[in-house]
Structures are given as C-alpha cells and as structure tokens.
Amino acid sequence: MSSAPAQPMTPPPGAQTATVAAGCFWGVEHMYRREYKGKGLYDARVGYIGGDTENPGYRAVCSGRTGHAEALQISYDPTQLSYRTLLEFFYKMHDPTTPNRQGPDVGTQYRSAIFYHDAEQEKIARDVTQKVDQQWWKGGVATEILQAGRWWDAEEYHQLYLDHNPGGYECPSHFLRKFPDLRD
C-alpha cells in the first residue's frame, strides 16, 4: 500500500463542492458514486477535514488525536444535482443520531458532520437538518454543521477503495433508509 498523497480533484467550471462526514469514508464514497454517477456527480474524493493537524495521514486520523473526520468531498453540477438532494441522501445513508460513532466505528473521526462552503450552503444545511431531525429521526440528530476548513485528500489507496476491494470493510450503518419526502 502506498502512502503517497492523492491527486486533488479539479472540478470543471460551474461545479460546486459539498463536504460531508458520515463515518468510514469508503462506504460513503461508494454510496454517493453509485447513487449519482451520471446524474450530476463529477467526482467524489475521500479525505480529512475538521482537525488541527497539518497534512494528516490515515493512521494519525484513525488514532482520534488529530481532530479530523473521515469525510467525502463531492464535486457536482448544480444544474443537475442540488445541494439539498445531496444532504437528504446524506441523512438517509447513515445514522446521524450517534455522536462520534457509526456502527462499530467509534471516535471523533467517525462523526456525522456537514462542512458548508458558503452562507447559502449553511442555510440549506440547517434547514434540511431541522426538517430531518423533526420528520425522520425524531429529535435525535447529532450531526455537526461546521464551516469547511482545510481539506486533505486521503492517500490514493483509499480512493475508490470498495471498487478496488469489493469484499472490503463496509460500516453496517451505511445503507439507504426509506423515508417519506420531507415536508415544508
């Protein structure tokens, strides 16, 4: 396994970026790619955000001492795929009610978080989270909503991990839940 840094994503003009953390990033990446490939998703990269360590690596992040979350950064076409849709999917594909935990994965690196990139994303994140908390998760949402800071791509062997390792680890809390459409 190589620990060389991955090549950063270069989105096309007009693309927007969404950044979410929902536990082990392999399953999160896999689910978003499967759901939105050919439907406005340009790219999805796994990496680290939200901590205070420069250039963190996987082992350091897994120690829980860097403050970083394992996360997914999505580059998408907003004319085909809305930020709101990406966030609704986020709340359907993991358990946002367990602070610093997804299934058997425990620690701040596995927290549920939305990292917004501008004021409009923050507004949408807070609105969707409030509705999801009331209508789907009945007051249990523990998701953090934070301004996006410095993003660090994970090592190359983590990118498309489940595509390259079909029998690889998938967090048991990563599956698509059936919820009714959100009401206004």
Rank of each mutant, 00 (worst) to 15 (best):
T143K: 02
G27L: 02
P56K: 12
E122P: 09
G149D: 11
V132P: 08
M1Y: 09
T129C: 14
N100W: 00
D127L: 08
D181E: 15
T97A: 12
L160G: 06
L146M: 14
E144M: 05
P166G: 02
Y36R: 07
E35G: 08
R34G: 11
H164G: 08
Y76V: 02
G40R: 00
D95C: 05
Q16G: 09
V128C: 12
A21S: 08
G67M: 07
S173Y: 03
H68W: 09
K138G: 10
N100G: 03
A22H: 02
L41P: 13
C62G: 13
R45E: 15
N55H: 14
P5W: 10
T129W: 05
Q73K: 15
A15S: 07
D95Q: 04
P8I: 13
R84Y: 10
W151T: 11
A148D: 04
Q159F: 04
F179Y: 13
V61M: 12
A21R: 06
F175H: 14
R34D: 07
F90D: 01
E144S: 13
K92R: 15
C171Y: 02
K37M: 06
P104H: 00
V28C: 08
F90P: 00
R177W: 05
E155P: 01
F90Q: 05
K178I: 11
I49A: 04
G23S: 03
Q159T: 11
C24H: 03
H158D: 13
N55Q: 11
I114T: 00
G38I: 06
Y42D: 00
E156P: 04
D118I: 04
A71R: 05
G27D: 06
Y116A: 03
G139H: 11
A18C: 12
Q134C: 10
D127K: 08
Y157W: 15
G40L: 07
M31T: 05
V132D: 03
I124G: 11
S2H: 08
P56A: 10
E144L: 15
R126L: 13
N165C: 12
F115N: 02
G47I: 11
D127V: 08
G51H: 03
E29W: 01
S173F: 11
H68L: 14
E144K: 09
T108Q: 03
K92W: 09
D105C: 13
Q7R: 13
G14E: 07
E70A: 04
L72A: 04
V141W: 06
T19C: 09
L87R: 11
W26I: 01
P96C: 11
F89V: 06
S3I: 04
F25S: 06
D153N: 15
A71F: 01
Y91W: 10
P166A: 14
G47N: 07
K138H: 15
R126Q: 14
V128M: 10
K138E: 08
W136I: 07
P180Q: 10
P5M: 10
G38A: 13
G140F: 04
R84H: 09
L87S: 06
L182A: 10
Y91H: 07
A4P: 00
H94V: 03
G51A: 12
I124D: 07
W137A: 10
M1Q: 05
P78Q: 10
Y48W: 14
Q102K: 01
R150E: 14
V141G: 09
